[in-house]
Design a protein around this nucleic acid. Structure first.
Lengths: 196, 196, 196, 196
DNA sequence: TATGAATGAGAATTCATTCAT
DNA sequence: CATGAATGAATTCTCATTCAT
């Protein structure tokens, strides 16, 4: 049962960190403020995380984990490459759009952190790019997508479009739903991929 | 002539800041280290900049200024929309690829800073997006590009692709030339825009 | 029998403290580390000791107790003052040389602690000095030792020599046996005491 | 002139540290308290010392330096070995007796610190022991001192006596003058050394 | 008795900024 | 204009001690 409680407390700290970092940015966020929001003492943070950096790190991992896992699951559900790609686009925009604070971390703070802890983060982005790349390859093999496109390049281009939409949504604090862009985004990507 | 010398010193500080921030990130960069690299005293920095943030700010402005100015010039040179777009792609990748340190600022540090000084920076990105958007509109009016595309959306999508390529190049420390991606990038974008 | 077990646990904590403090010094030793080495929970420490200082305190007491008790016993065994003194020298060097960790506490950490808890510790050193002093007095009364020497001063001088040898042995991490110095030390002291 | 001022400020910090450490012990002394006593800001400390440990370190060096330098000078002044030794005894007790706070550092705090920074401190004690040892050797060569004594051992024994007197004086807060012990101490040592 | 998670006061250190020279 | 010593607020992290179980 202690385990249960621990798990809860660790998550509470992570949740608090997401809110604080989203609001203040990583460097302006103090451990004290995270602790206060999580409703624990400053020192308690250090029972669950080695240091401040580890908090950020774990928050990223948690978020990227969802993208990768749900991305994979989504691929298995659908069969056609076009459909798969549409699902990825929708999933990406939905997941980002679900939680603005988390999105700020992923779209804004993560970028910055890439700088000094790229090994992990970039590896995870790489994993995500691979998922997209696989869908592209499948589409090329089935003849749905043009074959003269490097799948690695295509994956990056697709990610770039998704990412800019997400960043734009995060920074323009409008109250639109990000998923509503799904069709337009998929349309643009699809135009770039289809055999014409 | 005093102005001349002053101007030089201000630029030296900015140049030093670019190198230091690219290497250490904004928050890990100390004013003292910038001063040392610029060959001036710590206090001298404050004769040219109100505070540390202003340095970062001015470095962004300088960089974005080049993108906007050269982007505009490029638009005027060419007449056809397709050609214009191709020039923008080439220009973007060339400018980013020219100076890796500066690129790190723009691609990595800028993102983070958008967070707390978005009003200006985003405005400048907006200005840049507008330049791209104008080329799209022209292409639609001339019938070169499909008309069923929101130009604002298209500009963002194009910027997203360019931006991901730039970020990828910055973070993967390979020694390739970024401009070499021009054709592939333009090809992808063009496929998404042309009347099919 | 519960007492028995408790007693064992208290001793285990003291033993662990000796090792840890000898290795890390008093201030660098954490209660948690002592607990871990003793194989008990952190909180358990406080069932046996009022606070961290008390642990150190009790470890000193235990060690000084042995010096005083064995010193006294030694005095009773031998009859002649010269012999008594020789026994004290040998005993001191043997006891110190028996356990390096304990010696580090006594020779190095004790000094530091004298500073803020001198009342007790110094009292115990005083007790030990008295034992030495009594041997001196006896020697003077029997005519074996010169009479023109203040016994209190002589005791301190003798203790000083013994102490420096012990400290030197502790700090120079050589593998010599400390007792091997007995003859040389006694010889020097004897020269200072005898009627010439 | 800046140099002059710096030198003064550094010394002021060292002096403040001596008083504070003597009163509170090294670990209970805070940098803030040293700064306050020295009349400088906390941060200023770090312009002159890399960290807290360096302060202690430099204070030791300064103190031991005096012992070594004045010890050497004293050796050169006198010619006979007996006289030299007497001078060392007097000098040692005088220097220690001059400044109780400084003496606390040397007699109490230094011991403790030997534990974790012995390389330097013990080296300096070693240098001091050598000075004593040389006087012993000279006395043996001239026939003043007995030849059957290991000079290294003799130096340690002498140092031990001096040291115990100093420690005893520091810890017993009586208002006696430490130099007044010179004759008694020298007498005891001399008895141990002379040809009998 | 025994546990060990939680606490929170406390300390070292950094660094943007100022200002006397 | 230029300097760089001095400042002191602010932040991370540690660890002795407590207390509910």
């Amino acid at each position: 049962m202690a385990r249960q409680i621990d798990g809860k407390k660790k998550e509470r700290i992570q949740d608090a960190a997401v809110v604080e970092i989203a609001h203040w940015g990583y460097y302006q966020t103090t451990v004290a403020r995270i602790a206060k929001r999580a409703g624990v003492a400053d020192g308690t943070i250090y029972l669950y995380f080695k240091n401040k950096e580890e908090i950020l790190y774990s928050v990223f991992e948690r978020a990227m984990g969802r993208f990768i896992n749900e991305g994979r699951a989504s691929l298995e559900k659908s069969t056609g490459a076009k459909e798969k790609l549409r699902n990825i686009v929708e999933l990406h925009l939905t997941l980002v759009g679900e939680d603005r604070d988390q999105a700020i971390i992923t779209q804004v703070e993560l970028r910055h952190s890439l700088h000094f802890m790229d090994q992990l983060s970039r590896a995870q982005v790489g994993e995500y790019l691979e998922i997209i790349g696989k869908a592209v390859v499948q589409g090329q093999e089935s003849g749905e997508f043009r074959a003269d496109l490097d799948p690695v390049f295509a994956a990056k281009a697709i990610f770039g479009v998704l990412d800019e939409m997400a960043t734009d949504w995060v920074l323009s604090r409008r109250n639109t739903r990000l998923e509503s862009k799904t069709s337009a985004v998929f349309d643009f990507i699809w135009a770039g991929l289809r055999v014409c």
